[in-house]
Design a protein around this nucleic acid. Structure first.
Lengths: 208, 208
DNA sequence: CAGATTCTTGATCATTTGGAAAAATTATTA
DNA sequence: TAATAATTTTTCCAAATGATCAAGAATCTG
């Protein structure tokens, strides 16, 4: 019959779909969209190229699927700023969650970084829509905390950017971080050290 | 005669070399290494592909040249931490210089980001050597400032990472920054706002 | 200005890569 | 189990791309 167009239906489809996306995440996050070939992805997923193309109609289709799922997962932790909680704690624990995501999902972080670096051709609309709205909402909460004198007066949007930048740095620029820290401190310790640094850093910057 | 191997000699070589590298910076920074074609670069440099290949023996050669020159320029501002100066001022003005580089040389920033994202295949050695040594040297200065109680106790290496991350973010993630800030604040103002934010942010985090 | 050198171009190749078609195989179900 | 549907493989193609080369055009030098 015709090629699989939308959602997986059979047992095999579900499984293969998953294997392909998993493999594609590996390949795309390492080589970028244009640097990745269907063959590579197929090989990583343990199947032939035409077989892969039976499940996804082309390379873009795989990438698109990956990217749009990503954005949801990626933004999840920002949803959880609780206005009623202690502001400094709320923000530092957001920093911690975001850093943990960089540690646990470095491939996703790199996939995202690649996409943005190339000018976000596939998610511009989501950035202008969903993302902006979400950030504006959280920025409003931060602004109120500032008005109430609960944290230092710092531009909320740029504060959020700084959190994204500092945390994602540990995933996206991992090679550089390791190189600079050297064999000792660049090992497994680096994440714990980063967490400790960021905690101290944001507490100092935020407390009124 | 044989192809140009090392340094430009004639007037024409000097000029064409420059044009090619300039064009390549445009193209590579926008599309990454594998996403860029020799044809694109040649077109951007206003010459034919074979003509371009008369000056550089292949695509990698252009990229390599660009990347290795880049690292020197890129690290320059870090050299200028003056131990005798006022610590907070020294660091915030380093932040400012780095941010200005992101504004004035976004292509270089993206080229670098691309390279690191792909695992730094062409500059791993420089990261382990030059870069690490430079950072260690500056970290030592910061450490002494901390020991002398002149600035807050914060891990120097991670502090430097945070500066790189927050400043480069404005070049590498520019599309995202613009999208989130929206048409108003995402315009020309965004750099000045970023500068003001980072200044306030680092002063607060650093002062003892 | 003539010869030597440097530069440019048009034609051409070989490879890689995204993708399609159809045949062959395997699973599902009536 | 026979018929049908789903999956996989084999084979192939066309476009894109990195790279070469020989010949012609321009430039430089004595």
């Amino acid at each position: 019959m015709a090629r699989v167009e939308t959602k997986p239906k059979t047992r095999i489809q579900t499984e293969k779909h998953g294997r392909i996306l998993e493999a594609a995440l590996d390949v795309f996050s390492e080589n970028g969209f244009r640097g990745s070939t269907i063959d590579q992805i197929a090989a990583a997923a343990g199947m032939s190229k035409p077989n892969l193309l039976y499940y996804f109609k082309n390379k873009q289709d795989i990438h698109q699927t990956l990217i749009s799922r990503l954005l949801d997962v990626w933004l999840a932790p920002l949803e959880e700023l609780n206005e009623a909680g202690d502001p400094v704690t709320e923000i530092t624990s957001y920093v911690r969650r975001k850093l943990e995501m960089s540690q646990n999902y470095p491939r996703e972080s790199r996939l995202f970084a690649n996409e943005i670096l190339q000018g976000a051709p596939h998610i511009q609309a989501k950035l202008d829509g969903e993302l902006k709205e979400l950030v504006d909402r959280e920025a409003a909460i931060i602004k109120r905390w500032i008005s109430d004198g609960k944290i230092a007066k710092l531009d909320p949007h740029h504060l959020i950017f700084s959190i994204w930048a500092t945390t994602q740095h540990y995933a996206d620029f991992d090679v550089q971080v390791r190189a600079v820290l050297g064999p000792g401190r660049g090992g497994d310790r680096r994440h714990a050290d980063a967490a400790a640094f960021l905690e101290a850093f944001y507490v100092r910057a935020l407390k009124p």
